[in-house]
């Protein structure tokens, strides 16, 4: 009996050890590409080419960053993206929360009809061109609103937030407020919104990430280069390999040299582009984990 128990314990330990070791390997595999980009961005491109920068940077240079920061399109892209993200998040989250709160009201007439009206848009849409034509007809091209309004109301988020309102805020609170003479709007601002902070945080985070990372909407609706968000500025460098004259700058040496510098610029711009989200995300991690729980649709 005793021996058996010991055996059981040790097999448990073996499993635990293997499990941890396996996950450690996975974590390293997942993190390595990002780490590699980071070292390559401060290494001499010839060393990267020769495969000497697997673990540590070699012949450290900040040339890539210098050129990226000199580049106007990146700086402008950053500012544009911040503007689009802040405004877009404000509008989108306001639409989500007002809709979710209203449809969570149990006594609201036509509640079901309104939900069906929204859910249809989750599965069926006009598609690229009809939407483009409407956006263009309503005069939104090249305006920040073309990035925000065509997305409409994020229905999935509405469902999550509605579930939260229904399950986490007791009906009695609303009734008490009504007895105290609070109007429905007053109750929304003074009672429902403050209590909905956790779900609000989740919505803000998800919406922000979506706006920050979006490029396709801007590609369709923003014709003017001066209005490109960061992701489109990165597209020119990373996908289309168009390092601009300002970036290449004073370059001696031939085509090979130019090629190497382009690679260095690419590494540096990846770091510059990815850093804001990667730094911000661990701080908000606990919110989105909670959000998944809060919004879990009940059976």
């Amino acid at each position: 009996m005793n021996r058996k128990k010991e055996n059981g314990l040790s097999s448990e330990k073996v499993f635990n050890f293997c499990n941890c070791a396996f996950l450690l390997v996975l974590v390293v595999i997942v993190a390595y590409p990002l780490y590699y980009v980071l070292i390559a961005s401060i290494s001499d491109p010839y060393e990267v080419y020769a495969g000497k920068t697997f673990i540590l940077p070699s012949k450290v240079t900040f040339e890539g960053y210098a050129r990226v920061f000199r580049e106007e399109s990146i700086a402008r892209g950053y500012l544009n993206s911040i503007y689009y993200t802040v405004l877009g998040t404000l509008v989108s989250v306001a639409l989500i929360i007002t809709t979710a709160y209203s449809v969570s009201k149990k006594t609201l007439p036509f509640k079901k009809t309104i939900m069906v009206f929204y859910v249809i848009t989750m599965y069926f849409g006009g598609g690229l061109i009809p939407t483009y034509l409407v956006v263009s007809r309503t005069g939104l091209l090249n305006s920040v609103w073309s990035l925000i309004l065509p997305g409409g109301v994020a229905v999935y988020n509405v469902i999550v937030a509605r579930t939260y309102f229904e399950n986490s805020i007791p009906e009695e609170l609303y009734e008490a407020a009504a007895i105290d003479g609070s109007s429905n709007l007053g109750t929304f601002f003074k009672i429902a919104l403050p209590l909905a902070k956790p779900i609000l945080a989740v919505m803000v985070i998800f919406t922000m990430v979506a706006y920050w990372n979006d490029w396709f909407t801007a590609l369709i609706y923003m014709g003017e280069k001066s209005k490109y968000p960061l992701q489109l500025a990165l597209r020119q460098i990373l996908i289309q390999s168009q390092a601009t004259a300002t970036m290449m700058g004073n370059m001696d040496g031939g085509y090979a040299e130019a090629n190497k510098i382009t690679e260095l610029i690419k590494f540096a711009s990846i770091v510059v582009g990815a850093v804001p989200m990667l730094i911000a995300y661990p701080f908000v991690q606990r919110y989105f984990e909670k959000g998944f729980m809060a919004g879990a649709v009940k059976g």
Partner: peptide
């Protein structure tokens, strides 16, 4: 419940204009 409909109105308008009119426009 009029206040709830006021809260719902912006979302419904945006959805009609940018979701339902394009659906209607599929006929092209």
């Amino acid at each position: 419940h009029w206040e709830f409909y006021v809260l719902l109105l912006p979302g419904i308008l945006v959805t009609i204009i940018y979701k339902y009119i394009p659906i209607y426009g599929i006929q092209i």
